[in-house]
Computed example of a mutant assay.
Amino acid sequence: MKPETLAIHASNLVKNTTGDVTPPINLSTTFFRDENGGYPGGHMYSRVSNPNRSALENTVAKLEYGEDAAAFASGNNCGMSLFQALKPGSHIIAPDDMYWGIKKQLLTIFNETLEFDFIDQTDLNLIEKSIKPNTQLIWIETPSNPLLKITDIEEIAKIAKAHHITLACDSTFASPILQNPILLGADIVMHSSTKYLGGHSDVLGGILVTAKKDELWEKIKNIQQTGGAVPSPFDCFLLCRSIKTLAYRMKGHCENGKKVAQFLVNHPNVEAVFFPGLATHPQHEIAKKQMKDFGGMMSFLVKGDVDATSKVVNSVKLFAQATSLGGVESLIEHRYSVEGPDSKTPKNLLRISIGLEHVDDIIADLEQALG
């Protein structure tokens, strides 16, 4: 099946006597055992598995062409569980432009048990040079947050496989509709399902998908089920509901994104635009090779200082000044003020998530805010 069809039908796992077309929310935390002590319904306890979570995991695994998936209570839980599954002393090669929440985990939680280097992963030679005898994971993020860097998944996968290193890709900015890292050689794919998968800014979650059920994956599943940082049945229901429209929402985000990026490029008060769909983007050709389209995420530099940047972000009327991304509404955020004084993000950078409003209204709001 094509992604549009899978997104609608892959979550319809629940078969019941009432004949629901849309699977119901299954709130039971425990399930009947039979006379032999087995579980005829396939579930034992909701922390371990639940019909709604199984439906979600099945759907995203199929959309990402993986063997299995593990859903978590947040995107950060995904990174946390993967890092926990590594042997103490393992070395990780991570991107220099990395989502600050996952980076903060490495710097403040795993700093005594794991080693890591943050490098420019657009430089393949630098990746090769950064590999150590104890390197167990290359973590990539493409497009990256917030500079929209593109890393070549296929080429990095070749390097990882040659050195027997696991390659994990945070593909949140792309969604499974625009990019499938497993098909390009990645071992694990991560999504913050709060973002495009949820699409309505009303559910928190994260999900990992694996290319194969190997020893590392079994450790991750054990951490998920034993640690218990799992989404509720209602969260899983909301995500399955939202994924049904994912393919068509992404078409709208992509169409609006390209038009907004072109508007910003031509605006006299904009210094630079970071969007992989622009021919001027340094990794545009790589993006064309590995993405079906370019999404609705971009960042731009306001021409001027922090005060000029603050004036823009405080002048929008249609955009919501808020964190997160991937919802139907357009969002704008000054990333430096979120990430703090150690941030490498330029102080005049604004990150925008282009929503599904009419593109003329989106551009009009940016135009009046930029002056």
Rank of each mutant, 00 (worst) to 15 (best):
V328F: 04
A70I: 13
E4R: 06
A70C: 15
K244S: 09
L370R: 07
D307F: 13
L278C: 02
E271L: 09
D97Q: 01
A73M: 05
E141K: 10
S201E: 07
A186I: 03
M44I: 11
F31E: 03
N145H: 04
H253M: 12
N266H: 10
L27S: 08
L27M: 14
E329W: 04
G327V: 01
G38F: 09
L126M: 12
D96A: 05
E357C: 08
L184Q: 03
V328Q: 05
A211D: 09
N314C: 10
S201Q: 07
I352P: 03
H200M: 05
S28K: 13
D214P: 02
R241M: 04
G66T: 07
I363R: 08
I119W: 02
I243M: 06
E155L: 13
H164C: 08
E285D: 12
L148C: 15
E339L: 08
V328I: 09
V306L: 15
L238F: 13
S324F: 05
E285N: 08
P143S: 12
D214G: 02
L239A: 08
L349P: 03
V21Q: 15
S54Q: 12
E128G: 06
S46M: 07
D97W: 08
E35D: 02
S175P: 07
V302E: 00
D20L: 08
D123H: 06
W139S: 12
V273H: 02
S299M: 03
A69P: 03
E112C: 09
E57A: 04
L178W: 02
L148Q: 14
H43A: 12
A61F: 09
C240D: 06
